[in-house]
Design a binder for these strands. Structure first.
Lengths: 161, 161
DNA sequence: CAATCAAGAGAATATTGTTCTGTTATTATG
DNA sequence: CATAATAACAGAACAATATTCTCTTGATTG
């Protein structure tokens, strides 16, 4: 039996194209990488099966949905930590990211709201009452220089998840 | 002259479908919202033209590209602020987000690296030498509970950008 | 009450997605 | 070694989709 092939140059080309514009037609990708559509399709399917491609997303303009304000919260937790806190935080309206972090211990939360009024309300009326929350530090985003999920496709090793 | 229509229920349905799975065929979207493909295509194009849809992205597994470690840096800046710092930070390998924040003033940076060794190297050999950097605080992500860019499509008002 | 325009249905056609088959190169395996 | 198994791909065939066009409708406006 032979191994299922690792990520090669052509895979990287395909992924690079998809990172630029994920809704591009398969036939167009084939043209750009110089292979038959069937071959490209097979590669993309394998990348999906192996969990290297996790999904495809549309990027929406937050301003158009009254979510123009971004903020990061650092939430310091009680020593007798509540295990459900992360889950509860992730359900709050506008919360896009919840990470458990070290140094110092706590949660880092990224959220979006319409304005500072709404942000304050969420903090005061929701998050600060969650059990396990000892203190919160809020950092409001004044200006976003970069915001992406792209991965540099040159420095890669491969490893199946 | 009549106005170019605001975001309505059908637009929200379409955007919701695309947020789930952006590479879904147009014809399938039409079926799900009960409209002709031509009509859905026109709507999607307008959403793109108006900047409500900003683009389509593939989501890759960071582990497959030796970017399994995530960290947030808070970078405190010199009072005599250097205007280029944000740009420089955004060019560092692995950096996915750079936000200028208030309270206290500085930059919040999200970056990915293979491991703590590489992270340390980036901090020591690159970021800490950038002019304008006074101090950095590093928070390493132990566990990510949620990480998305989706927007809740129910609480929306509409507003063209 | 036309004239104008946005919005969409439906048909026509260009293009693409997907499956299938055959070929080649590579790798196990007896 | 020989040969069986497998991965990877091209190319063709067909199914499905994307896209354009035309026509209709309903709303708005001068």
């Amino acid at each position: 039996m032979s191994m299922p092939r690792t990520i090669d140059e052509i895979d990287l080309q395909i992924l690079h194209i998809l990172q630029e514009k994920a809704r591009i037609p398969n036939a167009e990708v084939s043209r750009q990488v110089g292979m038959a559509p069937s071959a490209v399709l097979e590669r993309i399917r394998k990348l999906e099966e192996h969990g290297i491609i996790e999904g495809y997303e549309v990027r929406l303009n937050p301003v158009a949905f009254a979510q123009g304000l971004a903020a990061f919260l650092f939430i310091e937790v009680d020593p007798a930590g509540n295990g459900q806190l992360g889950e509860r935080l992730s359900l709050v309206a506008g919360v896009q990211e919840v990470h458990q972090v070290a140094g110092p211990d706590g949660y880092l939360v990224k959220l979006r709201a319409a304005d500072t009024g709404e942000l304050g309300r969420i903090l005061r009326e929701e998050i600060q009452h969650f059990p396990g929350v000892r203190a919160t530090r809020t950092q409001i985003v004044l200006n976003t220089v970069k915001e992406t999920r792209r991965i540099d496709l040159d420095v890669q090793d491969e490893a199946e998840p």
